Simulated scan of single mutants.
Amino acid sequence: MFQLGKTIVSEDILEKDFVCNLSACKGACCIDGDAGAPLEEAETRILEAIYPKVKPLLRQEGITAIEQQGLYIRSDDGELETPLIDGADCAFVVFDDQNVALCAIEQAYNKGEISWKKPVSCHLYPIRVKDYTEFSAVNYHRWQVCDDACTLGEALQIPVYQFVKEALIRKFGPDWYAELEKAAKSFLQP
Results as ranks from 00 to 15, higher is better:
80 L>H: 13
14 L>E: 01
151 T>S: 06
114 I>T: 08
155 A>F: 05
61 E>M: 01
2 F>L: 15
44 T>P: 05
18 F>Q: 12
159 P>V: 06
6 K>I: 05
186 S>H: 06
46 I>A: 05
44 T>W: 02
3 Q>A: 09
138 V>N: 13
181 E>Q: 13
141 H>P: 00
72 Y>H: 14
20 C>Y: 10
47 L>Q: 11
31 I>V: 15
105 I>Y: 04
39 L>V: 06
31 I>G: 00
60 Q>W: 01
47 L>R: 06
1 M>I: 05
178 A>E: 15
13 I>Y: 01
41 E>Y: 06
173 G>N: 11
96 D>G: 02
69 Q>K: 14
155 A>H: 12
167 A>Y: 06
162 Q>N: 07
114 I>M: 03
93 V>A: 02
150 C>Q: 12
31 I>C: 04
89 D>F: 09
52 P>D: 12
142 R>G: 05
151 T>C: 00
75 S>L: 08
190 P>R: 12
63 I>Q: 08
73 I>R: 15
100 V>C: 09
66 I>Y: 01
163 F>K: 00
109 Y>D: 02
160 V>P: 03
13 I>Q: 02
149 A>P: 02
141 H>M: 09
36 G>Y: 05
158 I>F: 04
5 G>L: 10
6 K>S: 14
34 D>R: 10
24 A>F: 13
86 D>A: 14
82 T>A: 12
78 G>P: 06
26 K>E: 11
172 F>C: 07
119 P>L: 04
128 R>N: 08
1 M>W: 11
155 A>W: 02
128 R>F: 01
103 C>F: 06
31 I>S: 10
45 R>E: 14
26 K>P: 02
107 Q>C: 00
125 Y>C: 09
23 S>A: 09
14 L>C: 05
166 E>F: 06
138 V>L: 10
86 D>K: 15
176 W>K: 08
35 A>Q: 13
62 G>H: 03
132 Y>V: 00
37 A>K: 04
94 V>M: 07
29 C>K: 03
34 D>Y: 08
189 Q>S: 10
112 G>L: 03
37 A>R: 04
78 G>R: 07
146 C>M: 11
8 I>L: 15
26 K>T: 05
86 D>P: 01
36 G>C: 07
180 L>Q: 09
102 L>Q: 14
23 S>Q: 12
100 V>A: 05
132 Y>R: 09
69 Q>R: 11
11 E>S: 12
88 A>K: 15
155 A>P: 00
67 E>V: 04
90 C>E: 06
120 V>A: 06
118 K>Q: 09
64 T>Q: 13
27 G>K: 05
161 Y>I: 04
55 K>Q: 15
134 E>R: 10
68 Q>N: 14
164 V>F: 04
27 G>C: 05
55 K>D: 10
